[in-house]
Amino acid sequence: MIRFRAFSKRFGNHLAVERLTLDVGRGDVVALLGPNGSGKTTSLKAAAGLIRPTAGEVAVGDPPRPSVLAEARRITSYLPQRVSFPDTLSGLEVVEFYRALRGAPGGRVQDVMKAAALNGAGERAVGTYSGGMVQRLGLAVAMLPDAPVLLLDEPTAALDPDGLCTFYGLVERHRSDGRTVLFSSHQLGDVERLADRIAVLVEGRLVATFTASELALRLADRGVMRLRVERTSDAVLAGVRTIAPRATMVGSDLVVPGPAADRPRVLAALQATGATVLALTAEEGRLDAFYHELIAEQEERHP
């Protein structure tokens, strides 16, 4: 349904996306993950027909049509990162305008306002809305056309809890209806919860694709467990190092880097030394370090 073929986009001297090839099939929920400036927004905008490729092709639909054509945009619904609406219009007027534009049935207006938890604020001017409400209004507009392809640029960045529920519901509904969703996010939780596949972009290049479970596993490998233990000793540290050789003492904390899967065995080894665990925290791998690791891996494969 969405096809990037060697898609590149250059803005002046800056190459925002470099030869991106990615297929998002019917019914797929795919997340674009990457640091700021990695080309996520540019790729989504290209799929939404807002920017033209400098090289390569971006097409949507079946059969695929160049995304810049108005006919291609008929099957997509796009929500930008920081959506805004005229302050003097009411929420209902905004949604009614887009309903008329998309030729959606009249009943959809109330449906999407309710789904976005805005049915009590529909008569109010958008200028009186909070940031979260404006983003929910954007979601309401994105839901209007029942489009087969949904394109969402960091949809959860400015969402309040009500908005998050709306967003998760929207994506789940699209998945169960066999529709296609391509979204970008910095929130690992969103990505793991919603995406079937994750495409990692760094500095405009696609550096890896994972399933949600593969990504979770990779990040877990980079995790750290911190333990506060009663009566630490060299024997305790030696016991832990039989499982986690990189374990160290930092102050009074025992710091154990390594895969999440090893953690129960580390705890068992601690118990075997007779130590008592007073407190335990676990951190999964940091994304920025993970991105660097992926770049290094890619450079090793394609020097």
Partner: peptide, 16 residues
């Protein structure tokens, strides 16, 4: 010359 978020949403609609 609307704000970028407004322009993006508007021009992503299936209208020339």
């Amino acid at each position: 010359a609307p704000e970028r978020g407004a322009a993006e949403l508007l021009f992503a609609q299936p209208v020339p």
